[in-house]
């Protein structure tokens, strides 16, 4: 009885079902292909995945607030480009990192201002900046060959080791913890959920909806900038078209993790678990020699199955909680506002 209650409560936490599925998939792939969990392979694929995971988290924050950001992919590419460009011009690593993150910040600010000040739809604004950032990267790569940088310390951002663990892992982990803390423990973070659930209600409650929305786009831009820095460090060179197409992987990953496109529901862990799931699937199929022409079908199936699975599990878990409430056993206090929202409406989207 007690176990059941605990189980349903754990399962109802955003991102837990997908995390369990992720563990199962990893075990299956490890059985199918023993090289899957060798240190080299894990290191490679996590390194490949981290920039996209940062984008996934950024997009997830925007989605939680009820918006969407299509520009993250090419903005990350352009940030990688500006990072490399400052390095090629002989700047030290710190300046380059700041330039990259700053590029993301500028684009995030631009997106946010266009959306909140001019009231233009976020899909179209970020589609426009997707093109603009992609175009600027092409122009940049045509002016300067973005490669051949030997600045000490720059490649260590991804390839260095701290306590035996690759530094990219640390950077990503710190960013994720900070973001989750920010989202759950700060007033601003809670407001993001509030405007995602019901912007007008939040407005009535005194939340400056526009400012919070602007904040989410800036955050997403900064994370895209950070992703760009990591991309540049990992690749050691930057190419036109870098990052294009990443936006859809990021959005799919966030949704797979249980972030609701209707807004108001999601967490950093959920987005990371969803993004890792997509990366793991790709790596696993690759290491089993599956022709990539099958990837899009398998990924599509997985997204469908994942989202359906996530919804069903959560519904089951919540109905379990509700039933016990009716029968009078100790009601577990709703721990987040999203859960209360779910209980009230009984559906998630």
């Amino acid at each position: 009885m007690n176990f059941q209650r605990t189980a349903s409560r754990i399962l109802s936490v955003n991102g837990v079902p997908i995390a369990i599925a992720l563990v199962i998939v990893v075990i299956i792939f490890q059985i199918m292909s023993p090289v899957f969990l060798t240190p080299g392979s894990v290191r490679d694929y996590i390194n490949n995945a981290i920039p996209i995971l940062l984008l996934t988290v950024g997009v997830a924050i925007v989605i939680v607030a009820g918006g969407i950001d299509l520009s993250v992919g090419t903005v990350a590419g352009l940030s990688a480009g500006t990072t490399m460009w400052t390095l090629v011009n002989g700047a030290p690593t710190l300046v380059a990192v700041l330039t990259g993150v700053g590029t993301g910040l500028v684009f995030g600010l631009f997106n946010g201002l266009m959306i909140t000040r001019f009231g233009i739809n976020d899909f179209i604004v970020t589609l426009a900046t997707l093109n603009i950032a992609g175009g600027l990267l092409i122009v940049l790569t045509e002016q300067v060959p973005l490669q051949g940088v030997t600045t000490p310390g720059f490649s260590d951002i991804v390839y260095g080791n701290v306590f035996g663990i690759p530094s990219a892992f640390w950077i990503a982990a710190i960013i994720f913890v900070l973001m989750q803390f920010f989202l759950v423990k700060t007033v601003f973070g809670r407001r993001i959920f509030a405007i995602g659930i019901a912007p007008s209600a939040a407005n009535v409650a005194g939340v400056n909806v526009e400012r919070v929305r602007l904040g989410t786009f800036v955050l997403s831009g900064v994370l895209a900038g950070a992703a760009g820095v990591l991309l540049a460090s990992r690749l050691g060179s930057v190419q036109a078209f870098l990052g294009s197409g990443y936006e859809f992987i990021a959005i799919a990953g966030a949704v797979l993790g249980g972030v609701s496109l209707a807004g108001g529901r999601g967490s950093v862990w959920a987005a990371v678990a969803g993004g890792l799931m997509l990366a793991t699937l790709q790596q696993g199929l690759r290491l089993n020699g599956v022709d990539p022409v099958y990837f899009s079908i398998v990924t599509g199936l997985c997204i469908v199955a994942g989202v359906v699975f996530d919804r069903r599990i959560q519904q089951l878990a919540l109905s379990g909680i509700r039933k016990r409430r009716r029968t009078g056993s100790a009601p577990p206090p709703p721990d987040t506002s999203q859960e209360a929202h779910l209980l009230r409406t009984g559906k998630q989207d």
Binding site: I251, A252, I297, G300, I303, V304, V307, V308, K347, D349
Partner: peptide, 19 residues
């Protein structure tokens, strides 16, 4: 299945292009 439109049609994009 109750998928969000964005995700359902994104998955369909994957199916169609894969086929």
């Amino acid at each position: 299945l109750g998928l969000p439109d964005f995700i359902a049609t994104l998955a369909m994009l994957g199916f169609a292009s894969g086929i």
